[in-house]
Amino acid sequence: MQFSRRAALALLVAAVPMAGPATAQEPVTVGLVIPLSPPGDPAAGQLIRRGAELAIDYYNSKGGVLGGRKLQLSVQDSQGRPEGGVAAYRRVVGEDKAVAVTGFFHSSVNIAANEVAKTMGVPTIGTQTSAADITGKHYDVAFRTHLIDPLRVAAWLQFMQKKGFKRVSMVAETSDYGIGLVTETDRQIKEKKLPIELQSITFDRASTDLTPQLLQVKAFKPDLLVNIGVGAPMDLMIEQAATLGITPAAPMLISYDAPIRPQFWQLHPNTGDKLYFIAYYSPKQALSEIGTWFTKTYEEKYKESPVYSSLNGFGDVAIIAQAVEQAKSTDPKAVINTLETGKFSFWSTGDVTFPKADGVFWHNFSPPVLILQFQKPNQDWKEAEVAFESGK
């Protein structure tokens, strides 16, 4: 009987897997906080998600990270609201144990999440957020791979001077993104003593009628109207400005790259012609090895060319995968240290780094700035005229 008990115990111990190897094969989770419902911009969220998912596919096809651990996404909807972003960040970090969180599209969401990240210690990477405070507060956890306000504003002020625009109306939503751009534009005009008279008007981003604001614009008789709405308010301003006869007599500049999305001409078949818009990527641009893989795979899967939101969603998850591999750890402190000191492949050529630079350039990598203009209705954005390119 004694022998039987020992034999049974030995068999039981042999049947129980050891904790070490099991832990080694646990997947590594990357948090993705994106707008998937209003008042956020769901189209942007879905485009970022496409890129992030393909980054997971790419690295898992290469064997994953840390000797064979697969990567997985934890996707949460921020709804484009700061409180939604905070709840989403807490969920992917506290419940799903994400090693880093990316995907942020709305600046106010990114800023709010960073305040929580400062305490919880898991890093964030802003995918398409530009407000100064995202990196300007110099938090160890805060990183970004998107254009910052001072560079965007400097670009469109150079563009305005090139075109001879002297009376400019800016209609902006009352978000960190909108207010930040109005404030920075006013500051740079005064600092550089530019001959530009600026009219700035704000609106609540939940507004469904911008007629009162646009009537003020019409009375001002601007040379250029800058549309600083995101998502539905941006679309609404395009249509109502045309209805009121403001455009196309005065051209409109869209503050980000929404017109490159496939549904743009479906929404604006009669009002999109001659619009100017900011862009961060040109199909003529050279791509890295992983950027080339992504573009080919994206086109095969979705039967359309990728846009910047998807490229950056891919690039940010790729950076996180590389940081985990270089750190040889999923510990947040080790990942943060590697992000600060390492070099990373991105969708564009050249290495991405996150220096401890001054001001808003802290932990920041910015793409080039382009201003494109449609020349005819239903024009493919890839054929739009390049009206301005930073550095040229």
Rank of each mutant, 00 (worst) to 15 (best):
G180H: 06
Q199P: 15
P42S: 10
F277D: 07
V369K: 00
I371L: 05
R205P: 04
T124I: 09
Y58D: 10
A219Y: 14
D41M: 07
P283L: 11
I179L: 15
L73M: 07
Q72G: 11
T330Y: 02
P332V: 07
D316Q: 10
R261Y: 15
A10C: 13
N312H: 13
A88E: 00
A88I: 03
E289N: 11
V75H: 01
M234S: 12
A88F: 04
N364H: 09
R50E: 07
R6S: 15
Y58N: 10
G291L: 05
A384E: 07
L275Q: 06
K193Y: 03
W265Y: 03
Q379D: 01
E191D: 14
A22G: 08
Q322N: 14
Q285N: 09
A24P: 06
N110K: 09
K166I: 10
F104M: 06
S309N: 11
A279H: 15
A15F: 08
G40R: 00
E239P: 05
F354H: 01
K303L: 08
A14M: 00
R49F: 09
Y59C: 09
A19H: 05
L198D: 06
N364L: 04
K62L: 14
A286Q: 13
A387E: 10
T174V: 14
G126S: 02
P368S: 13
D331M: 02
P355S: 12
P42M: 10
Q375L: 10
N337A: 15
I238D: 03
A249S: 12
R205S: 06
W156P: 02
E300M: 01
A7M: 12
S329P: 12
S78Q: 01
Q161T: 11
A131W: 06
L147F: 11
V33E: 10
Y281Q: 03
A241L: 02
P82D: 07
I48Q: 05
Q128S: 13
T23W: 15
E191R: 08
E197V: 05
E304R: 15
T129V: 15
V99W: 12
V33P: 07
T338H: 01
A155H: 03
S74N: 09
T129E: 12
T349W: 08
L214S: 02
V168N: 02
E26W: 13
S288A: 11
D186A: 15
D176R: 10
S37E: 00
R152Q: 15
S309A: 11
E173M: 14
A357L: 03
T183I: 02
I201G: 00
V230K: 01
P306S: 09
T208N: 13
S390W: 06
S78N: 06
K137N: 12
K382T: 06
I56Q: 12
A100M: 04
L225V: 08
K376C: 12
I290N: 11
S74V: 11
K376T: 09
Q263R: 14
L32R: 05
A117F: 05
M252S: 07
N312A: 15
V226G: 08
V86C: 00
N312I: 11
A154V: 07
T292R: 13
L151A: 13
Q375H: 12
R81Q: 07
V369H: 04
I228W: 01
N364C: 05
K97F: 04
N364Q: 04
G391M: 13
V153T: 02
S130M: 13
V109P: 03
